[in-house]
Amino acid sequence: MYLGRLPRALFAFAVLVGLAFIYVPLGVVIVNSFNASKVFSWPPTQFTTHWWSAALTNDGVRAALLTSVRAGLGATLIAVVLGTALSFALVRYEFFGRTSVNFLVVLPISLPGIVTGIALNTSFTTLLQPLGISLGLFTVVLGHATFCIVVVFNNVSARLRRTGTSLDEASADLGASLWQTFRYVTLPQLRSSIVAGALLAFALSFDEIVVTTFTAGPGVQTLPQWIFNNLFRPNQGPIVNAVAALLLLVFVAPVWLAERLSGADRTASAGRM
């Protein structure tokens, strides 16, 4: 787009302001995790790594981390299987009601989390509890999988749209069975998008708090729940801050990897994640 020098500079300035808006608060969390003061005070006057070691050895944090990883793995596994199948069905086939199915599928991420949470809570407590199945980690996995499916679906669909069907047809023409075509032709083209979808699904599950709150049974505490429950306790402030800073750094790796794996799809089509 042709623009004069001044408008270009103004746009560049807006980008810098936007990036500062995004990164300054995150930087503050990292800096403040080394703040030696027991109660929050800014600016920090002394620095320590004590809160980091306290956070890493905290039993509550460790137990919550384990619960989060379990829930994330369970939800991701379900999401990969169902999300991939769904994207094949919706991208590669024309059928009556396809747009409606598409609409239904994106509902779990379009409706506020509290709606998903309370809907699942209603059906779990009304239908499962009389059967003797109470809320627990299992119900958290079901809840998380419901919206994780959408993430895998978005990633794999974008790849399917981009790759087209000519290689699959060539494989079939050369006599490969359906399974062989899938295993040796389709899957290798999709693999990185499935991995990216899985990583993002795991990240999304790992971060989820609203749906977790409504589907977790007593005694099940994920890491976000631990943070939320300890956020307002005065003595826990510095440890919560250190956990938050740790999460910031831990999140960078899988998401950066997912971005690398699916970058081409993303620029080829809009995709939320």
Partner: peptide, 12 residues
Amino acid sequence: PLWAGYLVKAYA
């Protein structure tokens, strides 16, 4: 930053 964690950002 989308993936930085909801509560981390709230805390920030």
